[in-house]
Amino acid sequence: MAKLKFYEDLCKGCGLCADVCPKKILRLAPSRINAKGYHPAECTDEGTCIACLSCARMCPDVVIEIER
């Protein structure tokens, strides 16, 4: 079980987290945009997250905080 926290306004919508997520449960929010005007990253199914930390490691802007 894991819990993801996104500091959305730091996100620049680069999408790298989504690319490396082994469970393919991350995506850029299709409609929402953050304060910078980017589509921020979000998790579509936190239940299946295995807290492998890949997304947080790949993120250049330390947007994702993870609890396990």
Binding site: M1, K3, D9, L10, K12, G13, C14, G15, L16, Y38, A51, L53, A56, R57, M58, C59, P60, D61, V62, I64, E65, I66, E67, R68
Partner: peptide, 27 residues
């Protein structure tokens, strides 16, 4: 549940100016 990944205290709170996807931020 314990926090297993969090922003380091050695980074300030200032968001970086690097371009989206630039890996400077990771380094």
């Amino acid at each position: 549940m314990a926090v297993v990944f969090k922003k380091s205290s050695m980074l300030t709170d200032l968001p970086t100016h690097y371009c989206p996807g630039c890996t400077h931020g990771i380094i």
